[in-house]
Write a protein that binds this DNA or RNA. Structure first.
Length: 422
RNA sequence: GUGGGUGUAGCUCAGCUGGCAGAGCGCUGGAUUGUGGCUCCAGGUGUCGAGGGUUCGAUCCCCUUCACUCACCCCA
C-alpha cells in the first residue's frame, strides 16, 4: 500500500464542511475591512525565506523543505506566507497602486518537524497583512478583525495576548539588560536555557521548566525599555483595544519565532489544544520590506493555524450538506426515466441522487435515509404506466401521487427558493 | 534530532505472561413480491504492522525494524 507522507494529512469528505465553513467566514469577515485575497506560489527561491525569517531561526536552520530543481536553483516549499506576499508586493510594485494595501491568503505551508497534535508537516494558514501603514490604528484594526473572525467561527475560549518588542532603536538596550540579568543566574538554568542564552536570550523567559521560571521571575520587562515612540504606540494599541471592548492580556514575556517582528506582537492562545496552544499569532514587521529590497514600508500581519482551528471548533454544529431529493426507481424502464429526471434536477442545481444498480426499494430508502434526504421520489412500473410519481416525505413518512407534468409545480410549492418560477 | 505510548476486521477496541481469531458499529441481504429510521435473523472480510528468535505450539515472551501517536526542541 502506498501511504501518504508523514505529517501530511488528507482532508476527507467527512471533514470538508468544517473547512468550507472556515473559508466562508474568512471572506465574510475580512472583506468589510477592505482586505483582498492574494494567491502566491507554494515554492519560492530559498533565499527569500533565509533573508526574511532569519538565518539562525529553527525554521531556516532545520525545518525547511529545500531542494534543487532541474536547473540547479535552490527552491523551498514555503514555511510561512508573509515572505511570499512581501516578495510579490515588492515585485509588482503594489504600493504604487495602493499606498496602504490590505491582503489576505489561505493555503498550505510546509515545515519539516516531528508531527504532533496541532502540528503537521503540511499545514494550512489563513494570513492577513496590512502593508504601508505605520499607525497603531492598523495594529488595532488587524486585531479587531482577528477577534471578529474568532467570534464568527464560534470560538470564545481563546485568549488574546499582546506585547511590544520595541524597535531597532530600543530593543538592543533591553536585550543587553536581559543578557546581564541571565548571566548572573546561568547556573540555575536548564541545559536548554543555557543554549538559549547564547542563541536567543528572549526565549529563556518562556521556558516551561519551573526552576527556570523561578530564576527569571524578576527579569527586566521589555516594556520598561521601550523608547518614547514605541511606548506611545503600545499605549495607543492598548487604549483602542479597550475602547473596542476586545479583552486582552499583556504578556511581556511573549517571544515570537521570526526575526522580522518589532513593536506590537500578539498570540491567540487556546485552552485544551495540547502543547501547541497558539492558534493564531503575528506582529509588526516594519523593516522587513526594505530588507528584502523593497521600498521603506511598514507592515503588520497575522497567521491563523487552520488545523488548530478545527481542533478547537465544535464541528458537530456545522450542518452537513445533503441532497434535496432521492430518486428511487424500480425496474429497468423506470430507472432510465428516473435517470432523466435526475439529470434534469442536477441541471437546475438541485442536489439529487439515485441508485443505478437496481437495488430493492427497501435498500434505496435506506440509502435515502442515510443521506437525510427530505423527499424521495418513487418511480415504479405502476407509476410509470400512470405517468405519475410517488412523493414520499421522509420526515412524516407520508406520500402522495403526483402527475409527472405537475411534479415541478408540486416541488416549487414546497421549496420556492429552490424552484423559482420559470 | 530526543523521550514515552500504541499497532488485532472499513472504524472503535476486547483477547487471562502461550493452545482453532473476537465484539460493537458500519456495510449487504432478508423478516415485508414495491416502502427508511426501531427490532430480529443471516452474511463476509484479517499476512494479529513487518522481519527474525525461543517453543511441540506465539496475537501473547525476546530482539530488530517500520508506522502511528503524544511530549521535548520549536512553532500556526
Amino acid at each position: 500500500m502506498i501511504t501518504g507522507i508523514k505529517g501530511m494529512n488528507d482532508i476527507l469528505p467527512a471533514e470538508i464542511e468544517a473547512w468550507h465553513f472556515i473559508e466562508a467566514c474568512v471572506r465574510e469577515v475580512f472583506h468589510p475591512f477592505g482586505f483582498k485575497e492574494i494567491r502566491v506560489p507554494v515554492v519560492e527561491k530559498t533565499e527569500l525565506f533565509c533573508r526574511s525569517i532569519g538565518e539562525d531561526t529553527d525554521i531556516v536552520e532545520k525545518e525547511m523543505y529545500t531542494f534543487a530543481d532541474k536547473s540547479g536553483n535552490s527552491l523551498t516549499l514555503r514555511p510561512e506566507g508573509t515572505a511570499s506576499v512581501m516578495r510579490s508586493h515588492i515585485e509588482h510594485k503594489l504600493h504604487i497602486l495602493n499606498p496602504v494595501d490590505r491582503l489576505y491568503y489561505v493555503g498550505p505551508m510546509f515545515r519539516y518537524e516531528r508531527p504532533q497534535k496541532g502540528r503537521y508537516r503540511q499545514f494550512h494558514q489563513i494570513g492577513a497583512e496590512i502593508i504601508g501603514e505605520p499607525s497603531p490604528l492598523a495594529d488595532v484594526q488587524l486585531l479587531n478583525m482577528l477577534w471578529r473572525f474568532f467570534a464568527r467561527i464560534g470560538i470564545n475560549d481563546a485568549v488574546l495576548q499582546i506585547n511590544s518588542l520595541g524597535c531597532p532603536g530600543c530593543r538592543p538596550r533591553y536585550r543587553q539588560a536581559l543578557v546581564d540579568f541571565i548571566a548572573e543566574r546561568l547556573d540555575r538554568l536548564c541545559g536548554d536555557c543555557r543554549r538559549r542564552y547564547q542563541h536567543n536570550p528572549l526565549r529563556v523567559l518562556d521556558c516551561k521548566v519551573e526552576q527556570c521560571r523561578d530564576a527569571v521571575q524578576a527579569a527586566p520587562s521589555v516594556l520598561d525599555f521601550l523608547c518614547p515612540d514605541c511606548g506611545t504606540h503600545f499605549n495607543t494599541v492598548r487604549r483602542l483595544l479597550s475602547n473596542l471592548a476586545i479583552p486582552f492580556e499583556v504578556n511581556n514575556r511573549m517571544v515570537r519565532g521570526l526575526d522580522y517582528y518589532c513593536r506590537t506582537t500578539f498570540e491567540m492562545i487556546a485552552s485544551r489544544l495540547g502543547a501547541q496552544n497558539a492558534v493564531a499569532a503575528g506582529g509588526r514587521y516594519d523593516g522587513l520590506i526594505e530588507s528584502l529590497g523593497g521600498p521603506t514600508l511598514p507592515g503588520i500581519g497575522f497567521a491563523i493555524g487552520m488545523e488548530r482551528l478545527t481542533l478547537m471548533m465544535d464541528t458537530t454544529r456545522i450542518p452537513a450538506s445533503r441532497p434535496l431529493l432521492f430518486l428511487a426507481a424500480l425496474g429497468e424502464k423506470a430507472v432510465e426515466k428516473a435517470f432523466l429526471l435526475l439529470a434534469d434536477f442536477q441541471k437546475q442545481g438541485i442536489g439529487a441522487e439515485m441508485d443505478f444498480s437496481g437495488k430493492s426499494l427497501k435498500s434505496q430508502l435506506r440509502r435515502a435515509d442515510k443521506l437525510q434526504t427530505p423527499l424521495v421520489l418513487i418511480l415504479g412500473e405502476d407509476e410509470l404506466a400512470a405517468n405519475q410519481i410517488q412523493v414520499r416525505d421522509m420526515e412524516t413518512a407520508t406520500q402522495e401521487k403526483v402527475g409527472l407534468e405537475s411534479l415541478r409545480t408540486f416541488l416549487a410549492s414546497r421549496w420556492p427558493h429552490h424552484f423559482p418560477q420559470a
